[in-house]
Simulated scan of single mutants.
Amino acid sequence: MKRIVATICAAAMALSLAACSTTDSSSSASTADQSSSASTSSSAATEESADSDFDNSQKISVVTREDGSGTRGAFIELTGVETDEGDMTTVDAQQANSTNNVMTSVAAEEGAIGYISLGSLNETVKGIAVDGVEPTVENVKNGTYTIARPFNIVTNGEVSTLDEVSQDFISYVMSAEGQALITEEGYIGDDAAESYTSTQPSGNIVVGGSSSVSPVMEKLIEAYAEVNPNATVELQTSDSTNGVNFALDGTYTIGMASRELKDSEVEAGAVATVLAMDGIAVVVNNANPITNITMDNLRAVYTGELTTWADVQ
């Protein structure tokens, strides 16, 4: 009988210890959940505090590209800043003569807004959505992000009339290898392009024009030098208008333009070949909490109708 009583007591003690262990475990889990919740709340509060540091009443500093820029031409056309009366960009806008200068200006001024080639977007500035659509390669491809334009190489006449080096270089740019490099650099190449076969010509050519096209063209020229070391391709950066005009007058063997050709340029003999598609990203300073702007408000900012960030919210 004593053995039976002892066994029962031992079992009772074991159950009691198990119950205490379960209670302690539940208590620890509850404490951890509370700690996690507090951490999340703290993080949210910190983010909200950071946002609250931004002064919405401050004036919007509008940054645009210079006259002659293909990026400016495409932007004002696609956003409606250009009307039948011409380019209505506010006279108060700062003019930057390159993609890098736009990013530098926006990164340096908390209240600034600008626009750049999507392929050049980096962490120094913040790209924002337009009408709720993010500026991404995929959204440009599927047509939901509508502020997009072609990157063109421009020649005086058909490509077939050019010298052998120019034809070979253009063949490389438009090949599967060249288009894959374009895609790798963050632009939109042709996935169906055919493989490249070089004729290994020798000679020198000059490619020049748009500062938006220039970064990816530099990569293409470097890659071409590896497959055809017999040729030398010099790169000169200016703007799209000079890219077209200098291709026509022979200063550039091949021009670069980050926009469609004008009727007058086509009539003068300019021929455009689309080497890639590119979005135009609207960018703000990283301290600005804004993540989206409507097309109407974007247009109003650039025409000077909206002048403070409070107007845009």
Rank of each mutant, 00 (worst) to 15 (best):
A129N: 11
S25V: 09
E218T: 07
E110C: 06
V216N: 00
D278K: 06
V62H: 08
N142A: 07
S214W: 01
N288Y: 00
M256R: 01
A268M: 07
N285L: 12
E82G: 13
Y196Q: 04
V312C: 08
L121W: 04
R3Q: 12
S35D: 12
A32H: 04
E194K: 12
K219Q: 05
G243F: 03
S39P: 04
Q95F: 06
S49R: 06
A11M: 13
R72I: 02
S36F: 15
Q179P: 14
T22E: 01
L220A: 13
S25L: 10
F151H: 08
G250R: 10
E260V: 14
G203M: 02
S39R: 05
V137F: 11
S195K: 01
A310S: 05
A270E: 00
L162H: 05
E185K: 13
P289M: 13
E66L: 04
N101E: 08
T64G: 14
A112H: 04
V62D: 07
T146F: 15
L17K: 08
D67Y: 15
G269D: 12
V216Y: 02
R149F: 06
Y252T: 03
T31R: 09
R299N: 12
M256H: 00
A12C: 10
K219V: 04
S35G: 12
G111F: 10
G250P: 00
V213W: 01
M277V: 15
G208N: 07
M256G: 01
K59H: 08
G250D: 13
V282R: 10
S175V: 03
T64Y: 05
S166Y: 13
L15M: 11
C20A: 10
G68D: 04
N139M: 08
D87S: 06
V81L: 05
D191N: 07
V102G: 03
L220G: 13
D239C: 02
S16C: 13
N204M: 05
M217Q: 12
S37E: 04
D311Y: 15
L118P: 06
S69N: 07
E109I: 11
N142D: 14
G255P: 00
N297E: 02
Q58L: 15
A300N: 07
L162M: 11
S41Y: 02
A74G: 08
A272S: 10
A272T: 14
V216H: 03
S37L: 14
A287R: 00
T40H: 10
L15T: 06
Q167E: 05
Y187F: 06
N230I: 08
P150H: 14
M1F: 07
P229K: 10
D278Y: 02
S258G: 06
N101P: 13
K219G: 02
S27H: 09
C20Y: 05
T237A: 12
T31M: 10
V140Y: 09
G157N: 09
R299H: 05
T79Y: 00
A310T: 03
V233K: 09
S258C: 01
V227W: 04
